Amino acid sequence: MGSTDKTPDQINPISSNVDPWKERIIIPTLLAGIAGGAVGLISKHRKVIGLSQISATYAKNLAIVTGCYCGAREFTRVNRIGKPDDLLNSLIGGIGSGAILGRLHGGPVAAVRYSIMFAVVGTLADYAILNLKPEISKLTERKESWFEMPEWSPIRVLDEEALTAKRAREEQIFRSVHNLKKEES
């Protein structure tokens, strides 16, 4: 088989993995930043440090941690030529990113602690997300609205026939009320 018979993915297997990196790195990082900002809003330190400063600090720190973890996980996936849902990538990425951030934050002892913590928390989060993806896709695949009124609810969506009958009843009630007012005066 000549090199001209190969698809672009066979020539450069990394090129097929570059496109969804935004979904696996950028989006989780942004969501983590938003979550960190929300945690800052309810932090006990908001009165002392200031609401905006503590929210920004929490948002920045959680976004940095998530970005490092997701980047290390994707780096591992590309180097192992693995699948995105391989939890071994999460474990190795968590160990690597935890070691780097722990070393920067508190030395060799912190590097070991952060490695273990990032590996466990990151792998558990990825496992939970993998298990929730089918449930989320079931919700988004529904062609009906995402919110349905229960059967016992008095609120109903009327079709054209029922809407016409309702308007006729309302007009009849309106005429009878106005006829009573004319008789009273």
Rank of each mutant, 00 (worst) to 15 (best):
G98F: 12
L101Q: 10
F147Q: 00
G98H: 03
I42N: 03
N79H: 05
A111Q: 05
L158D: 03
L51E: 08
L30P: 03
G40D: 03
I129Y: 13
G107H: 11
I14F: 14
L87Y: 09
V120L: 12
D86I: 00
S153W: 00
V48Y: 07
I95H: 02
T66D: 00
F118H: 06
F147V: 13
P134N: 04
G82I: 00
P108Y: 12
E141S: 14
S145K: 14
F147K: 04
M117Y: 10
L31Y: 12
A128E: 00
P150F: 07
G40A: 08
I27S: 11
V109I: 12
I14D: 06
S145F: 08
E144W: 05
A128P: 01
S137N: 12
I25Y: 09
A56L: 15
V157T: 01
E141Y: 08
M149T: 07
H105M: 13
G106V: 12
L31Q: 05
C70W: 01
G40Q: 03
L130E: 08
L62E: 00
W21P: 00
L139I: 10
R156H: 07
P154H: 03
L124V: 08
P84Y: 11
N61P: 02
A56D: 00
C70P: 03
E144Y: 04
G107N: 05
G96Y: 07
I64R: 10
R24Q: 10
M117W: 06
S55A: 15
S52E: 13
H45T: 09
T76C: 08
L132N: 01
P84I: 01
L62S: 03
L124K: 06
S115Y: 05
I64C: 06
A56Y: 12
V109D: 06
K60H: 04
H105D: 09
G37Q: 08
G33I: 02
N79T: 05
A38K: 07
A111N: 03
A59C: 11
G40Y: 06
P28I: 09
V65R: 02
I14L: 15
S55H: 08
A128K: 06
D159V: 09
